[in-house]
Amino acid sequence: QQSLTVNIGSSHPEANIWVYAMKNTFQPEVNRILAENGNEYQVNWVENYAGTLYKFTDTREAVMDGIVDVGMVGTVWEGANMPLQNVTYFTPFATEDHRMIIEIFDDLSENLPELKNSWAENGMVHLSSLITDSYDIYATFPVASMADLQNRKLNAPGTSANWLRETGATPVDGALTTYYTNIQTGVTEGTLSFASGILPTRVYEVAPELTRVGIGSMYFGGIAANKDFFEGLPAPVQTAFREAARATSIAHGDYVGDLAARALDEMQAAGLTIHQLPDEEKAKWVNGLPNIIEPWLEQTGEAGKTVLKAYFSALRERGATPLRNWDEGL
């Protein structure tokens, strides 16, 4: 029997939606598969979860530089080095089905050369996709029409600020950890966010009106292995990693789905009221957005066009109807 040491880690704690399946599915699955295949190899996991080694801004470099061998990589924070993966954030209102996003990106990251190479160029091997559930508005007020968003201040950090353009609302920077205080003190009046993220931060206590908008589920990043490390693994262990990664994708989708459903129940029990933005208002929002994909296409060039086309045809193949054809005219 041969023993291998694998450093696994993340910038976020084990209970986080993007880390949960790493710890609770990936690791045990690898162990199980190796044991079933004759116990020839055994993995000695060294866990560095919860940002003890690096911060969320450094998830790519941590895996790339081998600080961990396997890690959660938030490509959402890597707009400069891995822009292709952020296609979902520039094409809102595509689909609310987060399992579909996982499926599509597991496929594209392995089979679309542009995406696969992007991981390789950054010294990584993509194992399993990480996503968010669909974005909605958690606020101190319900949104019945687009007029209700006029002159409102909403936390919408990073790329999600784009989604508020031309809506009359003002995007304010922030993070899951600052929403509660921001809303409580009136710095903002709500946030664009997703149920599984809102529940643990108790934002619903200060923003008790949820308006389901369905901005969509987003590709957040991936669980990835350091490329040199992965290629140095014995073939049976590589296979075990791959198989475990498939199980992890499914577990991740289920966990987020369950958590989002549970979150809505618990939050409602705690006083959250749920509203639905009417379809015609939603259409106004979507069609009123400027062409926010434009700068992304300029940055990513031909590769970007290929990824966008592949993503949107994968969506349609699976029966999704994006509310706006961001790929039009390519």
Partner: peptide, 16 residues
């Protein structure tokens, strides 16, 4: 070499 930046494409970016 890679013109690395921080910020958000299309909103604001600053080279690192």
């Amino acid at each position: 070499q890679t013109a690395e930046f921080f910020g958000v494409q299309g909103v604001w970016t600053i080279p690192t």
